[in-house]
Design a binder for these strands. Structure first.
Lengths: 134, 134
DNA sequence: ATTAGTGCAAACACTTTGCACGGGT
DNA sequence: ACCCGTGCAAAGTGTTTGCACTAAT
């Protein structure tokens, strides 16, 4: 991921490294605030603005993907390739979910629209919330 | 739609009628503010709170569907059945788009998740924004 | 040396809440 | 008469912005 940063002509700063390290291999699909809270102890000077900036930058560079699944809250996924997500309305967590759907990658025309991204979002309750009746 | 209101045990108020009338047959997928602005002249006393309340109520009753496609802004569709949407990043409009995908309706288990809704969202640029280079 | 990136605080956009009043049933 | 729905204002949540300072190249 650090290589990808350099390749994109972006500067390697401690803050960016920390965010990348936290996201890399992370399957929890954290929100902006979760990322901030996680890194704040280690980086007391870290500001929300930097987290927002960095995530936006990484997304623009195609290194991560934004997940717009929880109304009014942005989540991020270190895996930039299209895949399906599930949002639990009860515990508010985001999961990867395999629907066996083959998602087309890359930009293309679909009828009258120039499609750049495709998102498949499922909503409901995760198993543990179902069990505990939340 | 008015019948559906009554069937759901909801009161038929002028505000709700106005919102339903505006949405019914409307394919523009308006945001909350667009609905408010449209109806305000006709209903000077109308408040945003009522618009939010009503839309939430109609969604809960399964009469309309919410579309979470523009980050940080809610849109609504009078068609409550699952179908695909396209969001133009340039003009910020939401369109119906036919992918020829058969979407399953109703709640069901998908692997470990209790799935209640499914959304397929495409993002990019609409034809007219492509042409005008916006 | 240059200029991209950071951090702070204030501003912003959208949504929710509490409560008194009014209208639908 | 009951009580659901409305409207107002205030508060809440998440995000963006402007600008001076700092640090990566």
């Amino acid at each position: 991921m650090i290589e990808k940063l350099k390749d994109a002509g972006l500067r390697v700063t401690p803050q960016r490294l920390a965010i990348i390290n936290f996201l890399d291999g992370n399957t929890s699909h954290p929100s902006v605030e979760e990322i901030y809270k996680e890194l704040k102890p280690e980086f007391p000077s870290l500001s929300m603005a930097t987290v927002y900036n960095t995530l936006q930058t990484l997304e623009n560079a195609g290194i991560i993907q934004e997940i717009n699944i929880e109304p009014g809250k942005r989540h991020f996924d270190p895996n930039p390739y299209p895949h399906c997500h599930f949002f639990c309305r009860s515990c508010k967590r985001v999961f990867d979910i395999d629907l066996g759907v083959e998602q087309v990658e890359g930009k293309r025309w679909v009828s009258d629209f120039w499609v750049e991204n495709c998102y498949i979002n499922l909503m409901g309750k995760c198993n543990s919330c179902m069990k505990s009746n939340d």
